[in-house]
């Protein structure tokens, strides 16, 4: 009986939603060209970025990107909070640090020599590539978020591959970079309010020969913010930092 009711409900829900979204998805209205044409004409002169996607998300619609950064910040803080509470139960157990010498590691640390060798060699290359994607976001596919994620994976590689803890895999240092870049991002966003270019306007438009200067700046800040915060989260998940 319960089972039948469940199936009837499921069919009803699926049917209604399918009927509601089917016409929307299959709409025959031709796709609007007005934004595309405008961007084709003006994006380069407005923002200085060749990549029109990045001229939208860091130029015309930068507020969305700020909101996205806030979602990332909150969800990472929340995830860390939820998972760190978990560690509190078994306080006496030594945290698994991947930077400990092999004999000191807990047995559940899944690390082999193969992993160490590959990860430590791959780490720097990936790090370089991450910065490339981040810095060239205005002229090629890429940008702060994408570059940041690659940087984060490079940091995870380095953390997995090196015996000694370097500055780059130290969560305190990473946390400092993260918080500072967030502060700079907020200041960069709000400074426009006081320089007549408006909220998220370009406060450094004049005074530089580089036309896409603001987009490059935002790409770097966002890349650092995203990269360090995701790296901190991954390292915390691997047990690199003890709970409070």
């Amino acid at each position: 009986m319960k089972r039948t009711l469940f199936i009837i409900k499921l069919i009803f829900i699926l049917l209604i939603l399918a009927l509601a979204i089917f016409p929307v998805i299959l709409s025959s209205h031709s796709w609007p060209v007005v934004s595309r044409d405008y961007l084709y004409e003006n994006a380069l002169s407005d923002t200085g970025a060749v990549n029109t996607v990045s001229s939208i998300y860091l130029g015309y619609r930068a507020m969305d990107t700020l909101g996205e950064t806030l979602v990332l910040l909150v969800s990472i803080t929340g995830t860390m909070g939820i998972l760190i509470n978990l560690g509190r139960e078994n306080e006496e157990e030594e945290a698994v640090s991947f930077s400990l010498a092999p004999e000191k590691r807990a047995t559940n640390a899944q690390r082999t020599h193969l992993l160490e060798v590959v990860a430590s060699k791959l780490g720097p290359v990936v790090l370089l590539f991450g910065f490339y994607v981040m810095l060239y976001g205005h002229i090629s596919p890429g940008g702060g978020f994408q570059g940041g994620v690659i940087v984060a994976s490079a940091i995870v590689f380095l953390a997995l591959g090196t015996e000694t803890q370097t500055k780059l895999t130290n969560t305190n240092v990473l946390g400092r970079i993260e918080s500072l870049s967030f502060l700079v991002l907020i200041i960069a966003a709000t400074s426009g309010v006081f320089f007549e270019s408006g909220f998220f306007g370009n406060p450094i438009k004049s005074g530089s020969s580089l036309s896409a200067n603001f987009i490059i700046l935002l790409n770097i800040i966002i890349g650092l913010k995203v990269g360090t915060s995701i790296a901190v989260m991954c390292i915390a998940m691997m047990g690199g930092r003890r709970g409070h």
């Binding site: 595309r36 961007l39 996607v53 939208i56 909101g67 996205e68 979602v71 940008g143 978020f145």
Partner: peptide
């Protein structure tokens, strides 16, 4: 070029 607006929007939606 294709319409860049949906691409920029989806960049945000993917991260969220």
């Amino acid at each position: 070029i294709v319409d860049p607006v949906p691409q920029a929007l989806m960049l945000t939606a993917i991260v969220i």
